[in-house]
């Protein structure tokens, strides 16, 4: 059984302590919603789990997963940028990440309603479509930990509902989600971690 635990986590960026003494635990099938005002360190926390920001102190342990891999290597980080190349087609963009990061669940494009534009260059997509393509990547690559930074910001209501369904399926399949958000993103029974209240 997969379980992600953090103890006494601290993060320092640009000489400023963003947060410290942070602890949480997420198990398979659970979601953790990270909230807090701007600058409280929501993004920093996600990037720390993804291994993109060095931990200043504390520990981050993943138990029950592949012991050969670090937590970051079992996580999929969905940040503010969509990591798409405008001159490659939608299909090529997705295929590259699937090949590079591993995985390869079929039907990811149709799950987000982009199969009609699979052959078009990603540069023609709108912000919402680009975000859908990022979500397709999330599904296709099938890593157990989803790290979502404001995942619904560019999505319309339909797409948000669709995405809530996809997140539910991921949790039901034994995955876990850590999401940073300002508003509700459609996760029921999520644990909440508020940042920035205790200085």
């Amino acid at each position: 059984m997969l379980r992600l635990e953090a103890h006494d986590l601290a993060c320092v960026r640009g000489g400023r302590e963003v947060f410290s003494g942070l602890g949480f635990a997420v198990a398979a099938g659970e979601a953790l919603v990270v909230t807090g005002r701007n600058g409280a360190g929501k993004s920093s926390l996600l990037r720390t789990i993804a291994g993109l920001v060095r931990m200043a102190a504390g520990s981050l342990n993943l138990t029950g997963g592949d012991p050969e891999l670090t937590p970051a290597e079992q996580a999929h980080y969905l940040g503010h940028q969509d990591a798409l190349k405008p001159s490659l087609t939608v299909e090529e963009n997705l295929a590259f990440w699937v090949q590079y990061l591993g995985g390869g669940a079929p039907g990811a494009l149709s799950a987000v309603g982009l199969d009609a534009v699979a052959k078009l260059p990603a540069g023609y997509l709108s912000a919402g479509q680009r975000r859908r393509l990022s979500i397709a990547r999330l599904i296709a690559i099938q890593r157990p930990i989803w790290l979502l930074d404001e995942p619904t910001s560019a999505l319309d209501r339909d797409a948000q509902e669709q995405f809530a369904g996809l997140m539910g399926r991921h949790l039901a399949g034994g995955g876990m989600i850590v999401a940073a958000t300002h508003g509700p993103i459609g996760l029921q029974q999520a644990k909440e971690l508020r940042l920035g209240d205790t200085p």
Partner: peptide, 9 residues
């Protein structure tokens, strides 16, 4: 074609 696909906005 890209505009006709869902997810505009």
């Amino acid at each position: 074609e890209a505009q006709a696909a869902p997810g505009r906005g």
